[in-house]
């Protein structure tokens, strides 16, 4: 893989968690490159460092060692505000527990990242959000309070929200872990289709073997290291 052409790449990432006696070396030199149009799965047993890797790649946490690029920009030295800006412009997150803002409607949840990005009128933002909700099959529930949506619907809103600012990279932590089989398959198919169609990059952490097998790449982690990377494309 050519690092400079990757949407997201890291080299030699190391991370420690905890202090003193409880200090754990959760990442022991992880290197990875995710290119546009690829779907990567990270699998491994609990505690192997999958989530830590995801949060560092998502600029929510800083590595103790190693380098990280988004596109051609090395982001290790960026300030907290600039990291926030990169998250807003370049990354989209999908979490297992979807984490919608409960006081907001479905469409308002999708608009939230756009407001931070700026540059669009209220009408433009709502129009784009409506389109994204339509893409995930929720056009008829756009104005419903997020509390009134089912788990599957909430996760689809979270996917629409992750795509709101047209990010180059989508990071997902067990995106189907809280859904039934039918919804799980539907959500994954939606994401995969989007990545291939719009040449975005997707990295997802999953325990679901079926989902992992359907990805282009499977990275197996153990004890803070990627012990195997297999191409399934």
């Amino acid at each position: 893989m050519d690092d400079t052409a990757s949407s997201l790449a890291c080299h030699g990432l190391e991370k420690y968690l905890g202090e003193d006696e409880s200090r754990v070396h959760v990442l022991r030199g992880v290197s990875l490159a995710i290119n546009p149009g690829e779907v990567h799965a990270v699998v491994g047993p609990s505690g192997c460092g999958k989530s830590s890797l995801l949060y560092i790649l998502g600029l929510l946490d800083r590595p103790d060692a190693g380098t990280l690029w988004i596109g051609r920009e090395e982001i290790a030295t960026l300030s907290d505000d600039l990291l926030s800006a990169r998250r807003n412009e370049e990354l989209g997150f999908i979490f297992q527990f979807h984490f919608l803002l409960q006081d907001f409607t479905a469409i308002e949840n999708v608009v939230i990242p756009m407001r931070r990005l700026g540059g669009s009128t209220d009408g433009e933002m709502r129009e784009r959000a409506a389109g994204l909700l339509d893409a995930v099959g929720l056009s008829d529930k756009a104005d419903r309070s997020s509390r009134a949506l089912s788990g599957g619907e909430q996760q689809r809103v979270a996917i629409a929200r992750a795509l709101a600012n047209d990010p180059a990279v989508i990071l997902a932590d067990e995106p189907t872990g809280n859904l039934d089989t039918a919804n799980s398959a539907r959500v994954f198919a939606l994401l995969k289709d989007l990545v291939h169609r719009e040449r975005k990059a997707l990295l997802l952490v999953t325990h679901n073997p079926a989902i992992a097998q359907a990805c282009d790449w499977i990275h197996t982690m153990r004890d803070g290291l990627i012990v195997d990377s297999a191409w399934h494309g």
């Binding site: 505000d81 926030s84 998250r87 412009e89 984490f99 803002l101 990005l117």
Partner: peptide
């Protein structure tokens, strides 16, 4: 607390 975390993940700054 979870909504704050999700806002931060969406690019909202500490100041926001």
């Amino acid at each position: 607390i979870r909504e704050i975390a999700i806002l931060r993940s969406m690019g909202y700054r500490r100041l926001d």
